Computed example of a mutant assay.
Amino acid sequence: MTKIITVEGLKKSYGNVRAVNGIDFYVEKGALFAFLGPNGAGKSTTIDIISTQLAPDAGRVLVDDRELGREDGAIRAEIGIVFQDSVLDALLTVRENLLLRGSLYGMGKDALRDAVTSAAFTADVMGFWNRPYGKLSGGQRRRADIARALVNTPQILFLDEPTTGLDPQTRRKVWDTIRLLQRERGMTIFLTTHYMEEAAQADYITIMDRGRILAKGTPAELKENYTRDMLKITPKREEKLSGLLKREGIAFQKTGGDFIIRLRHTAEAIGIIDKCREEIAGFEVRRGTMDDVFLNITGAEVRN
């Protein structure tokens, strides 16, 4: 395991508000890392600090073995950022925007041309390469944003809610690009998102709220620790099923005419169904989801 980002004791306050309150975590090289939390949790402040846009009050951050506050220029050369709100010029074409971005890195003419072309091919923007950014669709803009972030061939790509507001088909195309970067370039992806089904694809997840880290783990580990599977039964006769479950000592809740039974493990549903089969009109076994994880850990709904 190689750590490409290490955060230790990180703190940042705005007046009396402790936006980041002594957090510790790390990101493995080449991983898709999801950083989750409700609005106001401290995610954006943390990312701004790691990406050298904001100075911390305390703590230590290493990015690819370069220390924040001492080697910020080297850190900036290692990262790319796709902001939630675009920073590209609406009047310039995609090509012109990418060339302008690349020129900030002091590349020679040939190197700049090659870097821009490579970024454009990788993010699949060549089809609208010569169109003004302001004339693009939402999905095209997001892919152009990703291309902009790739011009300097970063080791780490920060994605701040990259698919918010996009339709499902366009979201899939953006995710195809993200996965391509991770798979073929070994790029580390640092993701924030409000779509829990996207977070479920991550290799590792860290959840924070009110400036503190609340939970860490793989999606499977978090589901195991913070959710329970559920059996939903639609009864033939409510009173009969209710009495049967009570006699068997099976706890349940009634919701809209259905009986909801929390399971210790998925296979437990088999025995319950077998005992109640004469009173079952229909049933559904629902696995715990990342939405359940988020709600159970933060006590807050996922929200934009």
Score class of each variant (00 low, 15 high):
residue 260 I to Y: 10
residue 65 D to H: 06
residue 175 W to H: 07
residue 230 M to Y: 10
residue 84 Q to L: 06
residue 110 D to W: 00
residue 62 L to Q: 08
residue 277 R to E: 10
residue 181 L to F: 03
residue 231 L to H: 04
residue 44 S to I: 03
residue 202 A to Y: 08
residue 137 S to I: 05
residue 54 L to M: 11
residue 136 L to Y: 12
residue 45 T to D: 08
residue 93 T to N: 00
residue 154 P to S: 08
residue 155 Q to Y: 03
residue 55 A to W: 00
residue 259 F to G: 04
residue 96 E to N: 08
residue 38 P to L: 11
residue 54 L to R: 04
residue 15 G to F: 00
residue 47 I to N: 02
residue 191 L to R: 15
residue 12 K to T: 12
residue 286 R to T: 13
residue 221 E to R: 13
residue 119 A to V: 05
residue 282 G to W: 03
residue 86 S to P: 13
residue 106 G to C: 06
residue 304 N to I: 09
residue 277 R to G: 00
residue 42 G to K: 12
residue 13 S to A: 15
residue 187 M to G: 04
residue 23 I to F: 12
residue 207 I to M: 02
residue 50 I to E: 05
residue 64 D to H: 11
residue 96 E to Y: 00
residue 50 I to Q: 03
residue 261 I to Y: 02
residue 238 E to R: 14
residue 119 A to K: 06
residue 102 G to A: 05
residue 232 K to H: 08
residue 147 A to V: 07
residue 56 P to W: 09
residue 98 L to D: 02
residue 189 I to V: 14
residue 236 K to R: 15
residue 197 E to R: 10
residue 1 M to A: 13
residue 114 D to L: 13
residue 36 L to I: 12
residue 155 Q to M: 09
residue 160 D to F: 02
residue 134 G to K: 04
residue 178 I to K: 14
residue 13 S to Y: 15
residue 162 P to W: 05
residue 132 P to A: 09
residue 175 W to A: 10
residue 187 M to N: 06
residue 286 R to M: 15
residue 213 I to D: 09
residue 5 I to Y: 10
residue 204 Y to A: 05
residue 7 V to Q: 04
residue 257 G to I: 09
residue 111 A to Y: 05
residue 191 L to W: 11
residue 7 V to D: 04
residue 205 I to S: 11
residue 74 A to Q: 13
residue 87 V to E: 09
residue 102 G to M: 01
residue 240 K to Q: 12
residue 134 G to S: 05
residue 259 F to S: 07
residue 76 R to Y: 11
residue 146 I to D: 08
residue 31 A to H: 15
residue 99 L to P: 00
residue 81 I to K: 01
residue 20 V to Y: 00
residue 93 T to F: 10
residue 55 A to K: 15
residue 258 D to H: 14
residue 229 D to T: 05
residue 71 E to P: 02
residue 66 R to T: 01
residue 158 F to H: 07
residue 134 G to R: 02
residue 195 Y to D: 01
residue 211 G to M: 09
residue 219 P to N: 08
residue 10 L to A: 11
residue 34 A to H: 06
residue 183 R to V: 06
residue 253 Q to F: 13
residue 187 M to Q: 05
residue 207 I to F: 03
residue 52 T to E: 12
residue 95 R to G: 00
residue 13 S to W: 12
residue 99 L to N: 11
residue 216 K to V: 09
residue 124 D to P: 00
residue 284 E to K: 14
residue 209 D to C: 02
residue 86 S to F: 12
residue 249 G to L: 05
residue 89 D to T: 01
residue 210 R to S: 12
residue 20 V to E: 07
residue 240 K to E: 14
residue 148 R to V: 03
residue 45 T to I: 07
residue 24 D to N: 15
residue 54 L to T: 14
residue 51 S to K: 03
residue 69 G to I: 05
residue 247 R to L: 03
